[in-house]
C-alpha cells in the first residue's frame, strides 16, 4: 500500500513536471469540464450541451458537462471562480451570473470581472413580452394604456431573474405599475399564463416560442432592439418605448489567471463550434443570435452589461441576501 502510494506520488510529480513544460503547446491534454450553473434541462443547459459537443471536436478532447445548479447560478459560478486556473474548468456564464447576481446579491460570492478570464460571448437570446389571448390588447401601447386604467399582474421565472428585471425596466420606462408574480422557473409561470391565471408574462423567447407559434400566447414585443429572425411579425418593445433593450446571453468564462494560451485555444474552439452550420441551425431554431466574440469583446460586454443593469436594479429595489 505504502509502496504503491509513494511510487504513484513520484510518478505523478515527474509527470506534472513534464507537463508544466509542455502545457503551453499541448492544451488540452485531458478532458475539459464545462460547469453549467443551472439544472439540466434549462435553456443555458441546452446551449451548453450543444456547444460542448462541437468544442470537443475542435479541441480533440472530451468536454464534460457538469450541472452545478443553485442560488440563481451563483453556486456554479463560484465553483469555477475558485477552481484551478488551468483552463480545464470553465463556466457557461449568463446575464444572471455575470451582471445581475453580482448587482443584486448583498453578499458577493465572487467578482464577475476580477475572478474570471473572459473566453467568448457565444449567443444573445431575446426575451419576449406576451399575454394570454383573452387579454384585450394586441400592442405594447394598448397594454400600457390598459395598465394605467386597471390593475394587472405579470408572471416571471423568479425574483431577480433577467425576466423579472425586464419587467421592472418595462414598468419604469412605461410609467405603469403591474404586480410582479414570481414563480419557480419559467415552466410554472407559463402554465399560469396559458390558463389565464395571470394575464402577462416576460419569458425567454425559446421557451415561449412554441406557445406563440400555436396562438396560445400573444406576443406583444421582443425585448431586443431588432426583431427576432424566428418571429419577424413580432415588433420590438423599443418601437413603443425607445431605448428599451434587454436580452439574455451565454458566454464562456475561465477562472482568472488562466494561461492566455489556454484561453486562446478555448476561444478558438468556441468560435469553431459556433461556425458549424448544424450548431447555427440549432441556435436559429432556438431564436438565439450567434456572436462568438473574442475574449476582449466579452470582457467589454460584461462591463457594459453591469453598467446597464445597475440603475434598473437600484430602481426596482431588488436585492437578495
Amino acid at each position: 500500500m505504502t509502496m504503491t502510494l509513494t511510487r504513484r506520488i513520484l510518478l505523478g510529480a515527474a509527470f506534472s513536471l513534464g507537463l508544466a513544460g509542455a502545457a503551453a503547446a499541448a492544451f488540452p491534454d485531458r478532458a475539459v469540464t464545462l460547469v453549467i450553473p443551472f439544472a439540466a434541462g434549462g435553456s443555458t443547459d441546452v446551449v451548453g450541451r450543444i456547444v460542448a459537443e462541437r468544442m470537443a471536436q475542435a479541441l480533440g478532447q472530451q468536454v464534460v458537462v457538469q450541472n452545478v445548479g443553485g442560488a440563481g447560478g451563483s453556486l456554479g459560478a463560484q465553483q469555477v471562480a475558485q477552481a484551478e486556473p488551468d483552463g480545464y474548468t470553465i463556466l457557461m456564464g449568463t446575464v444572471a451570473t455575470h451582471a445581475l447576481n453580482p448587482l443584486i446579491l448583498k453578499q458577493k460570492p465572487y467578482d464577475p470581472v476580477a475572478d474570471f478570464a473572459p473566453v467568448s460571448l457565444l449567443v444573445l437570446v431575446p426575451n419576449v413580452l406576451a399575454v394570454n389571448p383573452e387579454l384585450p390588447v394586441t400592442t405594447v401601447q394598448e397594454l400600457i394604456d390598459l395598465a394605467k386604467k386597471e390593475p394587472l399582474a405579470y408572471a416571471s421565472s423568479g425574483n431577480g431573474t433577467p425576466l423579472h428585471l425586464s419587467g421592472e425596466l418595462f414598468k419604469s420606462m412605461a410609467g405603469v405599475d403591474i404586480t410582479h408574480i414570481p414563480y419557480k422557473g419559467s415552466g410554472p409561470a407559463l402554465t399560469d399564463v396559458l390558463g389565464n391565471q395571470v394575464p402577462i408574462i416576460f419569458d425567454n423567447l425559446p421557451s415561449a416560442s412554441g406557445h406563440i407559434a400555436s396562438g396560445k400566447l400573444r406576443a406583444l414585443g421582443v425585448t431586443t432592439t431588432e426583431r427576432a429572425p424566428s418571429f419577424p411579425d413580432v415588433p420590438a418593445i423599443a418601437d413603443t418605448l425607445p431605448g428599451y433593450e434587454t436580452y439574455s446571453w451565454n458566454a464562456l468564462f475561465a477562472p482568472a489567471a488562466t494561461p492566455p494560451e489556454a484561453i486562446e485555444a478555448l476561444a478558438a474552439a468556441a468560435r469553431a463550434a459556433m461556425a458549424d452550420p448544424a450548431v447555427a441551425a440549432r441556435m436559429a431554431e432556438f431564436s438565439a443570435t450567434i456572436v462568438a466574440s473574442t475574449p476582449e469583446e466579452l470582457g467589454a460586454h460584461v462591463k457594459a452589461e453591469m453598467e446597464k443593469w445597475a440603475p434598473v436594479v437600484t430602481k426596482a429595489n431588488v436585492s437578495l441576501d
Partner: peptide, 12 residues
C-alpha cells in the same frame, strides 16, 4: 459522471 477520479490535493 463528471467526477475527478484523483483530485488536486493529491500530487498526481
Amino acid at each position: 459522471l463528471p467526477f475527478r477520479r484523483f483530485g488536486p490535493w493529491l500530487p498526481f
